[in-house]
Design a binder for these strands. Structure first.
Lengths: 372, 372
DNA sequence: TTTGTCTACGCAACCGGTTGCGTTGACTTA
DNA sequence: TAAGTCAACGCAACCGGTTGCGTAGACAAA
């Protein structure tokens, strides 16, 4: 699998080994600067922070010296003092290679972009942590927050009765939720940490109503299990739309699934083999919808007004599918930004008056429901 | 945009403000445990690390006490001692919202998954940092590595004469490269840090040869600028294949572009409007290929043997496109893992004998070149 | 009983900054 | 000239662990 590179391998390996001892060369400490400047550590510390109690001339001299020596303050030392790390963590299960997914979720990148951007402007670092499952799930949070690797954490993929949330609340570990807090938890009611969420239920309802408005009566809903709030809420929205339109709810049309394209593909294949297949499919995510559309195409079913497909998320990809995918767009970047703002506010000790942000998804109608 | 959540907003905002003072409650330090156990700090420290100089019984007693108090050692304090942070950083420009991209790059998630997974098994944290551009570009590395936010960094999107690489080498900042090191840099020759790379040139050559083998003679190459190694190498592979097959190189067929689906779409539209359009298109990435195929479809051109499209990357998405996309698969997860292994080896002071890993991409032929 | 050995643990310095408070010396005021 | 003021900076403790070294006490050997 791995083969030798172009340059002589042994030599470079050896070369690298020899240079390693120099690794820690020349990262000056505040004491070193003090020595060179002929002042005390404390004076240097103050000068570098532009403390007015140090005369301008001295300040300048010390700052120049520091710059010249490429001085950068040691983060650990600072963190230890301040009992803050200026770091927030994102724990995500989308990073787990093992668990099903297989296909990388573009959703995470968009969220990360928003988070990284906003965090940078607040001078915060972002720690990326893969979620563990089962027994070890809480251990991750204990390690990160108890051990002060980060000051707070962004929690995603909330579940009903989420024991991670209960744990964070009980320990007063600062956090924000992507997804509304489970009001079913006493801890969450007692410690109402902020959350931001896109209205999954309304989104799914609006999407389903769109399909109903096109005349569809047999609408399948493919997606998700019973685990996460977002999937339950979207399913609830679907059922709500049916109810409002006085359409019967047929449990056989509401099909649980995994979250990959493949799941969408296989389940759609199955649906289309029915005697009386549905005339429209609501896929719980755009990723899933990709598989749905592919299956339809493979079965020779043309996606459009007669057989409609709608997704959820509004990934950039959607408009380039065949046909372009109708979807509910979530402002994912925006959510990332807001989550960081909320968390930073909590960490600053000034939580926002209104700690709950509820965003509306936007229906984007494309050819997969409308036709060309 | 933001609207009030379901529960009374003011109340919960206020409630949160009141609980904040408790934030730092009950995170015991080693001194606290020592006090309760009636021993010295040092004894606790040793007991917790299972130092054999502490008798088993005492060790157990202290460990039980620590567990009972939910003790987790403070990372900053430990880092300060060890002059290590057990953290690696990934700096990526794919996180930048501003710069063009717009569409989230699924590539990054796959890389991140590999990195996060491997880092966890080495007990390393992963810091995610968005790249800056221009003047401030190097400042990011100075802050992260000079300030010891992380022990080492994974560098991506290498450029010829990359001054980031020169900077890291000059300061002996531990790093690994995704992409081969620029041998054009004296610093990189002197300090041969590890790298891992997928053979972009061979991949593009093989892909192009595949097209040539299908009988194509006018093959366009859409993609990339002149900035990054990976795009230059892929283009070089394309030209190499042409040369080997004694086909003329037509500069008009080799079209620079951005990296988004939209770029692929627009440029393909243009190509197809030519009097004598190419019969095949090599898109420099799968993401770009998505746009290419969409444009072909919109122009009524059927993608397949007569008009072939090939991508590069092997994203999971490819097999669900219409038609499924022929591509060069990169083992992205694998690359992530290897990069972490290499970096950890450097940080441990035991760089691998063979610090250069060169992976071969795999040609995956699907209907976009072969037809159904 | 004295000397020696070894076990079990304490003391204190240290990592690299930060910060409260004290001290020095120049200068002003009585 | 003595007392008071204030600017400029030093001293040392502190954050929370880690670690080299020293020592008290138990026990065995002489």
């Amino acid at each position: 699998m791995a083969s030798a590179g172009p340059n002589e391998p042994q030599q470079s390996g050896e070369q690298l080994r020899q240079m390693l001892p120099e690794l820690n060369s020349a990262r000056p400490t505040i004491a070193e600067i003090a020595r060179r400047a002929g002042v005390n550590k404390s004076t240097v510390s103050r000068a570098l922070r532009d403390d007015p109690s140090i005369p301008q001339a001295t300040r300048q001299r010390i700052q120049d010296l520091a710059a010249q020596l490429n001085y950068v303050p040691n983060a650990s030392a600072r963190h230890l003092n301040h009992a803050r790390t200026d770091t927030i963590a994102l724990v995500s299960r989308a990073l787990n290679l093992d668990t099903g997914a297989g296909s990388a979720d573009p959703f995470l990148v968009e969220l990360l972009a928003g988070i990284a951007d906003e965090a940078a402007s607040h001078h915060f670092d972002v720690l990326l942590v893969r979620a563990e499952e089962g027994e070890r799930e809480l251990g991750v949070y204990q390690r990160i927050l108890g051990g002060r690797h980060a000051d707070g954490v962004i929690l995603t993929d909330l579940r009903p009765n989420d024991h991670r949330l209960a744990y964070l609340c009980r320990h007063r570990y600062p956090h924000v939720l992507f997804g509304r807090s489970a009001e079913d938890l006493a801890e969450a009611r007692l410690y109402p940490y902020p959350w931001a969420e896109v209205d999954n239920r309304s989104g799914a309802r609006i999407g389903t109503e769109h399909l109903i408005g096109l005349g569809h009566r047999r609408i399948a809903f493919i997606g998700g299990g019973d685990t996460y709030h977002w999937e339950r809420d979207r399913r609830a929205g679907y059922r709500e739309a049916l109810a409002r339109a006085n359409l019967p709810y047929d449990p056989r049309l509401c099909i649980p699934s995994g979250i990959s394209q493949k799941d969408g593909y296989l389940l759609t294949q199955q649906l289309l083999s029915w005697e009386e297949p549905p005339t429209a499919i609501f896929a719980i995510s755009d990723v899933l919808a990709v598989g749905v559309m592919r299956a339809a195409l493979d079965a020779g079913v043309q996606v459009g007004p007669a057989f409609s497909v709608i997704g959820f998320d509004g990934l950039g990809l959607g408009s380039y599918l065949t046909p372009p995918l109708t979807t509910l767009r979530q402002p994912i970047n925006e959510v990332g930004r807001i989550l960081v703002q909320l968390l930073c506010a909590v960490l600053r000790g000034t939580p926002p008056e209104e700690p709950h942000v509820f965003l509306q998804p936007e229906l984007i109608v494309r050819a997969s429901t409308r036709g060309y």
